[in-house]
Amino acid sequence: MAHMANPQIENNFSYHAPKEGQPEKYETIRSKAKELAYLIDQECPKSREASVAMTKLEEAVFWANASVARN
């Protein structure tokens, strides 16, 4: 089955080598997320909800970094 090239699929499933300035952006995003992770860890009762918050924070970092890499 032949597929027509879809630019979004091609972009989303390709390796994106870091361009100038991107590693610093990744580090800033991770650093700020880490601050929030520590706040959640300190202020929230150990619970399923706190675990989900940490998972969603990790997802947010992933998607923020993907935004930098892909665009």
Rank of each mutant, 00 (worst) to 15 (best):
Y38T: 13
Y38A: 13
Y38E: 15
Y38P: 01
Y38L: 14
L39F: 10
L39G: 06
L39D: 13
I40W: 01
D41F: 03
D41H: 11
D41L: 13
D41M: 12
Q42T: 10
Q42E: 12
Q42I: 06
Q42V: 10
E43G: 10
C44W: 09
C44Y: 07
C44G: 05
C44L: 11
P45V: 10
P45C: 04
K46R: 11
K46E: 10
K46Q: 11
K46P: 06
K46T: 05
S47A: 11
S47G: 07
S47D: 04
S47R: 11
S47L: 10
R48D: 09
R48G: 04
E49W: 03
E49L: 13
A50P: 00
A50Y: 01
A50E: 00
S51N: 14
S51I: 03
S51M: 06
S51D: 09
V52Q: 13
V52A: 09
V52W: 05
V52F: 06
V52T: 11
V52P: 00
V52I: 14
M54A: 05
M54L: 14
M54Q: 13
M54H: 14
T55I: 09
T55C: 07
T55L: 11
K56Q: 08
K56E: 12
L57E: 01
L57W: 05
L57H: 01
L57R: 00
L57K: 01
L57F: 04
E58H: 08
E58C: 07
E58V: 00
E58G: 15
E59K: 09
E59S: 07
E59R: 15
E59H: 03
A60G: 09
A60I: 02
A60E: 07
A60W: 04
A60Y: 05
A60D: 07
A60M: 12
F62V: 06
W63V: 07
W63P: 00
W63G: 00
W63L: 11
A64T: 03
A64F: 01
A64K: 01
N65V: 10
A66P: 02
S67W: 07
S67E: 07
S67C: 07
V68Y: 00
V68S: 03
V68D: 01
V68I: 13
V68Q: 03
A69Q: 08
A69W: 01
A69K: 05
R70W: 03
R70P: 01
R70M: 14
N71E: 09
N71L: 04
N71K: 09
N71M: 12
N71S: 12
N71D: 04
